[in-house]
Each structure stands twice: as structure tokens, then as C-alpha cells.
Amino acid sequence: PQEIEELFGVLEELTAQEKTIIFITHKLDEAMRAADEITVLRDGQRVGTVDAGATTRKGLAELMVGREVLLDIDRPSIKTGGVVASVSDLVVDDDRGIQTVDTVDFEVCAGEILGIAGVDGNGQSELIEAITGLRAPEAGTVRLLGDNVTDSSRRQRIEAGMAYIPEDRQDRGVVMDFDLVGNALLGSQHSSEFRSSGRVNWDETREHAKTIINEYDVRTPSADTSAASLSGGNQQKFIVGREFERDPEFVVASNPTRGVDVGSVEFIHERLLELREAGVAILLVSSKLREVQELSDRLAVMYEGEFIDLVDPTTTTESELGLLMAGQQPDNAGGDKRESEPDLTEDPTDVTTDGERA
């Protein structure tokens, strides 16, 4: 947040010098903070231009989507269950062989969303890759439903109940040249549900793709459309639908709403909360502070490969989170929070969703 404010300061300096700036963003708050006038595009067409000082987030969202949008998340209190996924003393290196995750520990329980906040590049990507089986850790253990899956393949983790929404949808979420039928099969090609006599049952796979399209409001002419032909938001909704339709026990969602419009954000948030209410354990990693604050039951802050604090998202301000993300104590800017390590393996059933001890 502090760096964003610095950016806006630079924009103000440039406009004071009579420079003209075109600022393009999906984020309502940024548009209203930075712009004098806001032009809204929807489906490739201009739908209106408004005075930034005279509009509201709600009004701007309705212009962007074409309908009323619920901007505030309703996260009801629910009782969490037992531990579904846990990480112990996890150490992970990046592609250069440099350690980017340093002895991380945490647990996620049934019916809980554990959020991870941090500036991009502080080890979140490598941590998620180690949890989901895309990168081998240097040390430590990953457990799912009590079983050690540290050395398990992606296929084995999927079969064990793990679903994954990747941060880069086009690199890890879909095969751009495949149609939606082929993309619906990804990760399930060995499932008996989609196989017949040793071959892929394409009729069943096509019905599965249609279910995802219909249930998750994917805007496409047909299931035969290539993933590359969809907008980013519709690609994201298709990935979310495919992963949620696995009936998972544990969902890893990494920046699930990056680069999508406010309507798709609302839709994805609703689906995550539905899974939470159904007892699914969710690990949510996002660089959007509003997202992790409003969705998470507990919120860990990651800095330089470590979880440096565990906070109550309902009582911690955006400014305080920003300081923690920079490795500083909110009440002592410049202090290093890593002097006292948080215990993220405490039983979250002892903490109510409003942050108070039961």
C-alpha cells in the first residue's frame, strides 16, 4: 500500500507538469484514486465516462459489469473441523538454487480459509509449487489428510483430494490451443469417470465441460471453443470450475482473481466461501490485501521466505499489513518482526472467526 501511494504521488507530479496520463486498471479504488475521468469498457465497447470525484465504487462496478455487484464480502462465522493440510519445516529453493522459503510451518483445517499476504517475490510462488507438487522442497514435510505427500506426484495429490488454482492461468491453468473439452480433462485423464476400455470417454468429458461452462457462467459459444478465444476472466472461471468440480478436500488458490473484472471477482469469492461452508480447507495466496482480509479466517504475512506474523484479518488495518509485508512492526516501523516467530500450527478451532479466543 505504501508503494502504491508513492506511485500515485509520481502521477500527481506528472499531471502538475501538464503531462497527460492514460491509466488502465481492473481495480476500482485505483481508478478512483488516480483518475480525473474514468472511461469504462465492456465487451470491447465504451459504455460510459464518469467524473472520478462524483462516482462511487458501486456505480463504477455496475458500469463495468452491466448489473449490480456485491462489493462487500459476507463471511459468516462457522466452526472449523480437524486439520486437513499441514506443512512442517518446509525449505524451498528457486530455479537459481537460492533459498526462497525458509522453514515454514502451518496447518489448514476443514472449513477454514488461511490467507497468505505478501509482496510478490517473497517466496509465495515457490511455497505453493512445493505444496502442489510442482517443485521438490529441499527439506520439510507436506501432509494431506494425515498422509505424507511430500514426494507425491501432481496426479497423486489430485487423487488424494487437492485442487489447485494457479497464479498464472495461461502458463499453468489451461492449454491455450486446446478446446474447453480438452481443458476440462486436464488432471482427470486417469480418472475412471472419464475413461472407457483404456481410452478417454470423450462423450463424458464433453458433458463435464458443459457442466463447468453452465455452472460457472463461462461465456463461450460452445465447449469446442479454444481456451485462447476466451477472455481472461472466462479462462479463470473455467479453471475455478474444473478444480472445484473435483470435489476437493483441500484447495490451494494462488491469486485466484488476478486480472479479472469485478464481476468475475464476485463470482470466484462466492464459490470459495461456498466451499469453506461445505468444510473444505482453503489456502489463499493473494497480493490483493482487500481480498485476503475479507476472505481469510486467519492471515499469515510472508516476508523474505518466512511467515513473520499471524494476524486477525478483521482487526488489522491495511497500513499495518503493508508494514508487515515490508518486514516491519506496525507499532515500531523499522523493527524486524522476525525476532518473534508466529505459531501457525495452533488449533484454529480455538479461535472464532472474529479473532477472539473461544
Rank of each mutant, 00 (worst) to 15 (best):
D43N: 14
K27H: 07
V351T: 07
I165M: 08
D350Q: 13
E129P: 03
I131K: 03
A253I: 06
D217F: 11
V119L: 15
E274D: 14
V181I: 15
H26E: 00
D105K: 06
T316Q: 06
S287I: 02
R57V: 11
G263T: 07
S287H: 08
E294A: 15
G140M: 01
E6Q: 13
M325E: 02
R206G: 08
G259I: 11
I24W: 03
L324T: 02
T352N: 14
A61Q: 09
D297Y: 00
K19P: 03
P76M: 08
E266L: 10
N234Q: 12
I78T: 13
V265L: 10
A130S: 03
L186K: 07
V252F: 11
E68Q: 14
L127C: 03
G146S: 05
I116H: 06
G173D: 04
V351H: 03
L310Q: 01
M32E: 08
E249Y: 13
F307E: 09
D105T: 09
S231N: 09
E346Q: 13
F244C: 13
T150I: 10
D297H: 13
E193D: 14
A253Y: 02
G305H: 03
Q236Y: 01
R206T: 15
T314K: 15
L11R: 01
F23P: 11
V251P: 09
D350L: 10
M302T: 06
N183G: 10
V108I: 15
G173E: 05
A281Y: 03
Q17F: 03
M32V: 06
A326N: 12
T225K: 07
T20W: 02
Q124E: 02
D179F: 04
A333K: 13
T55L: 00
E356M: 14
V252R: 08
V252C: 12
T211M: 12
G335F: 00
R290E: 15
I116N: 03
D29T: 13
E159G: 00
L289H: 03
G44M: 10
Q236V: 02
P166S: 08
I78Q: 10
I282L: 14
T225W: 05
I38L: 04
G335E: 12
V50W: 00
L70A: 15
E126V: 04
F8A: 07
G335A: 15
R242K: 06
C109A: 11
L7H: 04
G121L: 04
G322E: 11
H26D: 00
L114I: 09
A31M: 08
L144W: 02
R135F: 05
R276C: 09
E159H: 07
G259L: 11
M302A: 05
S188A: 15
G121P: 07
G97I: 09
V218K: 12
R67C: 08
G259H: 12
Y216W: 05
S229D: 15
G279I: 00
Q329T: 10
T80N: 09
G48I: 03
F238A: 12
F23A: 11
E204G: 08
E193W: 01
A54R: 01
S191Y: 00
I24E: 06
L299C: 11
F238Q: 11
G133F: 09
P1K: 12
A228K: 10
I73M: 12
A52G: 00
D336Q: 00
D354R: 10
G123P: 05
D179Q: 09
S319G: 01
T103A: 15
V200K: 02
A31H: 06
F267Y: 14
A228I: 05
A117N: 05
L114S: 09
I268T: 01
I212D: 10
R42K: 04
R290P: 13
L127I: 00
